[in-house]
Design a protein around this nucleic acid. Structure first.
Lengths: 234, 234
DNA sequence: AAAAATTTTGACCAATCGGTCAGGATATAG
DNA sequence: CTATATCCTGACCGATTGGTCAAAATTTTT
């Protein structure tokens, strides 16, 4: 009698997105967990952890509340599972930063990728932002473990570019802080952006223009020029 | 019998910080309201609106819960009063952006000012960030009213600088979005910054270094050079 | 078809929530 | 000193919270 999903505290590894080797759980379980996680993302993004109620998540998922507890045990475990999935997406954009690549193209691809993420998954971004703002108690280990490690690794790449004179001298770590903040603000602070721009919603064209402006500002700030070939994010 | 403070929904005007003309309320009221607001800022920053309990705020202020309701009526009114005070600080930094000033110095002063705000009032920044992330229902009017107006006004100043060829062509509104995000991230996402930098706390020297890096990146991004005279924030 | 495992669900629980209120305590004004 | 306004606070309220559980329904395995 396996009470909770074996994937609840699963590894923070990139899952193979094509035919999964093992669905891990029956079809019913898989489908319901997905529905619950999707509803949870929306409710946690709207109301934060404490503001979100299991009842609200249940209604959004179209399932009775007791069903959520059957699959995830507690509210905290559901929240942690959701956070784990979001963190996996978080680090993917770093793949663009490699020593062999042209600095301008690599950084442009990174920015473009993070902006697309803000446009397509704003709810996930908000859940993450809310978690960090309120102390990041659930992901402390991730921040000072995996994230710190990968930042150090990619910072070394940028330091290499600087040493080779291929870009202006910048502190790569603070550059990352700036890139994260700048791109994610279009998801997390979307309401403020809309209010100032007097838009009732942000269109794809709005995001394209914002991405263009960020690219110019940041690349010029790094002593680089916007590459003519608009880099594809993925 | 004046039940609630007359200042509860007070004007969003800069209060004269020197000898206040009218304390508005007895000494006891003034002192207790200040204690409650200070405690509320900390608790709301830590837990968000729904996560914060009146009981927790009361304990932090060293007062019985019923006392908070005596002064502020409801949790929402207390929250709105706090938000109002924070918003007043928010717009002050815009004062640096004036047509007659040197673009590099003006923008540098703006950045320096907002970074000092992140260092000295991180709790206020978190309360504001949390409010915006979760829909900004309490400050919708402010965002699409006063804020939009002042941004338009200051954007015109920057457009003027661009037209005069005194800086690179940028969309001023998105420049502001970037400056807000970049500076506030050191308050709102402080936990993440600390984790990546492997610091148990951010020192004044950490903030000075961060400010320096942001100045270089942003000013160069605007086609400007960091002014030798480090501009004073106020 | 029988058996075993999994899934579903309403009813229920203790704890906490924001808010109320009466009446005593204290401070201020005349 | 008296009177009036302000301040204080323990006790209490209905509503909502996360979580439990047993028993029925369903699916999967044998």
């Amino acid at each position: 009698m396996m009470k909770f999903s074996a994937r609840s505290a699963g590894p923070a590894l990139k899952p193979s997105l094509d035919t999964p080797a093992r669905p891990a759980g029956g079809r019913t379980r898989q489908a319901n967990e997905a529905r619950i996680l999707e509803a949870a993302e929306a409710v946690f993004a709207e109301a934060g952890f404490t503001g979100a109620s299991m009842q609200a998540i249940a209604e959004r998922a179209g399932l009775p509340k007791a069903n959520l507890h059957y699959y995830f045990g507690t509210k905290e475990l559901l929240y942690r599972t959701l956070l784990g999935r979001i963190l996996d997406m978080w680090v993917d954009a770093f793949d663009h930063i490699t020593p062999d690549r042209d600095p301008a193209e690599a950084i442009a691809a990174y920015i473009t990728d993070k902006m697309r993420w803000s446009r397509t998954r704003p709810l996930a971004s908000k859940v993450f932002a809310n978690e960090v703002i309120h102390g990041a108690q659930q992901i402390e280990g991730y921040l000072s473990g995996k994230l710190r490690q990968i930042v150090a690794e990619k910072a070394a790449v940028i330091d290499g570019w600087v040493a080779e004179g291929r870009m202006a001298p910048v502190d790569p770590v603070h550059l990352f802080f700036t890139l994260w903040a700048t791109t994610q603000t279009y998801a997390d602070f979307e309401v403020q952006v809309r209010a100032v721009l007097a838009r009732d919603r942000l269109t794809e064209s709005d995001f394209d223009h914002a991405t263009d402006q960020i690219l110019r500002l940041m690349l010029r700030g790094c002593g680089l020029e916007v590459p003519h070939t608009v880099p594809d994010g993925r």
